[in-house]
Design a protein around this nucleic acid. Structure first.
Length: 841
RNA sequence: GGGCGUUUAGCUCAGUUGGCUAGAGCACUGCCCUUACAAGGCAGGGGUCGGCGGUUCGAGUCCGUCAACGCCCACCA
């Protein structure tokens, strides 16, 4: 092949050039004729396309790509699909803001609806179908932006294998898996108190909670005993006195022994309540007596359930106190008081209630301000309330110790990278307090594929849901007629009604191996890629994505979904603070790619150790860019001596020595990659490469410019070592390595074989020769530097002192050293290593 | 309140089973247009490896303990 080495090689434009070339050549196309043992399959995290692009998006994906490229070169057929996570709340929220709309499911579909150019304020209400159409339209645009970014940073994804969590295959897979969970008894519905976001008006799962420290206050309130004596409680939620069902103290609390089983009367409302005992009541908290409401917090739910207390809920799904006075409040005065709370939000009701209690004399002393943790939906802005409603659950071990044990054991069998991440899984599973709530009262997602029969009074029978045929999936029960019914029976007594909910986004994302591997519609492919080899992901979604994927795979296939889970660290802003939209410190990748180049950004990402938090660091990007430029220039030199020379021409001691050292580097880089330590592999290759350019190239330069077999040895060694370095760097710097490779090789470096030490270890070189000779050269340079003179200055006399090993090593490469040092002869002396340089005038 | 991680040069970080004088890059200083590279090269100064205690011939590395920072989890009275 004709060698075309540019005079002034440059990084400019390489990303676009090679992306287009790879696409045209199908370089990363998956070959599905390969068998499971030849294939390396990756369960790529589908990015949330409605989120903003930031450096965190680039960080983990580039690391995974480096590993994928290594595997491909090492001989595996790499199954590397890309998914888009577009279903769910983030998309709905983005659509609401982007178009200025709200979904109102009661509105009819408007086929002529077109969103306004600018989002109107206040937003306009549109039908569910119109809303979903906007979700699809916007995510499609977002996905294009993401794909372009991925291409620019050089992900070696097979773009023919992409999927979206809202596409038809995902919906079918998700509904099918759910129906199978249902058939096996792994999924169930129940009417129970759930954590509820009053703004999004949906239930949320344990995995989506976060605690936030909020100000509150202890209010000391008196209830009345039958003997007319007051009994005091302290509460942060006085507004819930009307929802109180009992008072509770610890069974061993001596102060209240004779009162257990007695009746007290609530202030203002005059409701009679039992005083009960339960071990969760803490004697040293407040007065030792707590008021149990339905429901102020999750402890209330526990008490309510375990003590079999009545339900007296007043907070509705919209977050407000119900309008009508509850029937358990019987007194005139109580009903009047309630009417002042009706329709209020809890914080408003609290103020009102405090006024009422103060006026009646049941509030004692000033409220004591405190700060306490309050549960929030991770995407929400107001504290969660607890509301009773019917929801669907998948059993996850939270209420079943045997299952929990099983899932813990399976987590232990997974190879965690780094291994301490396995502890997070363990703690999460051990801390589960209930089953996985998968239904959401939202719109853009995969529908729960069920209907319920209606009895003669038009009431649904939730115990006998009507199930669709698998062949008919995916279905939307709100617009599909169930088998055995006529559409006219929808909502009629004796007819049916659809389940109106959708599934949690994780209920679909937990099936990414099944979706990407086409479990549903291509069992042959699925058998070739599943169980997968690698799940790369972030630490914050171990409790959601990783756990739920493991769970679904356990249920459906009784197997771990992957062998290895590689968990990347957090991305911090340049000041080492966590990046977040709200803090306004999000660093976006595109300007950085434009300034430093994709290779530089990749280099930065691959410098972050597995599982280690990593700050955006422009300094490291500069180093990456410099490395890429260095590769171009060094390659230009190495390839500037005419045609290819076969490796068997290599016979000079220095050349053989260099290759022997390189063989060790290859071994180290390979072993690092095998341990998923891409950063180590890069570090090893890089430090060796700088030695190659700084010392070997300088030492061999003079000989290489000459003629004859000594020059031929240099040319062959340069070509061989360049080929090795290009392949070592190819996983990290795919563009520049491909560019250089293309100067003298016909195929893609990314389809070349990963270097093996055996390729060139047969030459029998001694690595010490290059090391020792380089040390002498460095000493000569130092002498010239100290003399503040040019490196071209001639050396009048050069004395190398050392033991016999040093003398043997240096003299083996003496001609090269003399030329590089600009000396004419070396005098050797026995003794401790030293170099004495006398410069010419 | 539990758990995990981090703490090494001014900054960002390596340091793989304990072993010769603790490394890199940035920043800083000096020199050099040398036919691969001046958006470069060569060289130099700079650290009692968070504190204390222990094991060992030998500890940045192992053990104990304390501290700071970060993250995860925890029943909101």
């Amino acid at each position: 092949m004709t060698r075309i080495v540019p005079d002034k090689p440059s990084l400019d434009g390489l990303e676009a050039k090679w992306d287009a070339h790879w696409e045209a050549q199908g370089t990363y196309r998956f070959d599905r004729t390969k068998t499971r043992d030849e294939i390396f399959s990756i369960d790529t995290p589908p990015p949330t396309v409605s989120g903003s692009l930031h450096m965190g998006s680039v960080f983990g994906y580039v690391q995974t790509d480096a590993h994928a490229r290594y595997r491909r070169m090492a001989g595996n057929e790499v199954f590397y699909p890309m998914g888009w996570d577009d279903n769910g709340l983030p998309t709905e929220r983005r659509v609401q803001n982007y178009y200025g709309v709200r979904c109102d499911p009661t509105l009819p579909f408007d086929p002529d609806f077109v969103p306004l150019d600018r989002p109107p304020d206040p937003p306009i209400s549109i039908s569910r179908r119109n809303f979903i159409a906007l979700c699809h339209a916007l995510t499609e645009e977002d996905e294009k932006v993401f794909e372009q970014l991925w291409r620019t940073v050089g992900l070696s994804v097979d773009w023919h294998q992409s999927y979206a969590t809202i596409d038809e295959l995902s919906q079918r897979t998700s509904q099918k898996a759910f129906l199978r969970n249902l058939a096996r008894g792994e999924a169930y519905s129940q009417d129970a108190p759930v954590l509820w976001d009053v703004d999004f008006k949906t239930a949320v799962a344990q995995a989506e909670l976060e605690d936030r420290e909020r100000p509150g206050a202890y209010h000391r309130i008196s209830f009345m005993r039958t003997d007319g004596e007051p009994i005091f409680i302290e509460t942060t939620r006085p507004e819930l006195v009307c929802a109180c069902v009992a008072l509770v103290a610890h069974p061993d609390d001596g102060r209240y022994q004779e009162l257990f089983g007695s009746v007290v009367t609530s202030p203002i409302f005059g409701v009679q309540l039992p005083l009960v005992a339960h071990h969760l009541a803490e004697p040293d908290k407040g007065t030792g007596i707590a008021m149990i409401c339905t429901w102020g917090d999750t402890t209330d739910v526990t008490w309510w359930r375990e003590l079999d207390l009545p339900t007296r809920a007043v907070i509705q799904a919209n977050g407000r106190f119900q309008e009508e006075s509850p029937d358990w409040v019987e007194s005139e005065q109580g009903r009047a008081a309630y009417s002042e709370l009706a329709g209020l939000y809890p914080n408003q009701a609290q103020k009102k209630m405090v006024e009422l209690l103060a006026a009646s004399g049941d509030l004692h002393g000033e409220p004591k301000p405190i700060t306490h943790p309050v549960k929030f939906y991770e995407k929400g802005d107001r504290p969660l309330e607890i509301v009773s409603s019917r929801q669907w659950y998948i059993r996850n071990g939270g209420r079943d110790d045997d299952l929990r044990e099983e899932l813990l054991t399976r987590g232990e069998k997974l190879d965690w990278v780094p291994d301490f991440m396995g502890v997070r899984y363990k703690h999460w599973v051990e801390g589960l307090t209930g089953d996985w709530l998968i239904s959401r009262q939202r719109f853009f997602g995969v529908a729960i594929p069920l209907w319920y029969p209606l009895d003669d009074d038009g009431l649904p029978d939730y115990s006998a849901p009507i199930v669709p045929e698998e062949a008919d999936l995916p279905i939307d029960p709100t617009s599909t007629t169930p088998p055995g019914y006529d559409e006219i029976q929808r909502g009629r007594p004796g007819g049916f009604q659809p389940d109106p909910d959708i599934m949690d986004t994780w209920a679909t994302s937990s099936l990414t191996p099944q979706i990407a591997g086409h479990w549903d519609d291509d069992p042959d492919l699925f058998g070739r890629v599943f169980p997968m080899d690698l799940r790369p992901q972030g630490p914050e979604i171990i409790r959601t994505w990783l756990f739920s994927t493991l769970l679904r795979s356990f249920y459906e296939h009784d197997v771990l979904p992957w062998q290895h889970a590689s968990i990347n660290g957090w991305i911090l802003d340049p000041d080492r603070k966590k990046m977040s939209k709200s803090m306004g410190n999000v660093v976006t990748p595109i300007p950085l790619i434009e300034e430093y180049g994709a290779e530089a950004v990749r280099y930065w990402a691959c410098n972050g150790r597995p599982g280690t938090d990593t700050a955006v660091d422009f300094g490291i990007m500069k180093i990456g860019r410099r490395l890429a430029v260095k590769i171009l220039n060094a390659a230009r030199f190495a390839l500037s001596f005419g045609d290819d020379v076969a490796p068997d021409a290599i016979n000079q001691a220095l050349d053989l020595s260099m290759l022997a050292g390189l063989a060790k580097v290859v071994e180290q880089a390979t072993s690092a990659f095998e341990k998923y330590d891409y950063a180590r592999a890069l570090e090893v290759a890089e430090s060796s490469f700088w030695g190659w350019t700084d010392d070997y190239l300088e030492l061999v330069k003079g000989r290489a410019y000459g003629q004859g077999p000594e020059a031929g040895s240099a040319h062959a060694a340069l070509q061989l070592s360049l080929s090795v370095y290009l392949r070592l760097f190819a996983p990290f710097l795919p563009f520049v390595t491909e560019e250089v490779w293309s100067w003298w090789r016909p195929d893609s470096v990314h389809l070349a074989t990963w270097p093996e030490a055996g390729e060139f270890s047969g030459f029998g070189g001694d690595p010490d020769i290059l090391t020792r000779t380089s040390a002498v050269l460095a000493a000569v340079r130092r002498a010239k530097s100290d003399a503040k003179t040019s490196m071209r200055t001639e050396v009048a006399a050069l004395t190398v002192t050392g033991d016999s090993d040093v003398v043997a090593a240096v003299s083996a490469a003496e001609p090269d050293l003399l030329e590089a040092a600009r000396a004419t002869a070396i005098e050797y002396r026995d003794g401790e290593f030293a170099v004495d340089t006398v410069l010419a005038d």
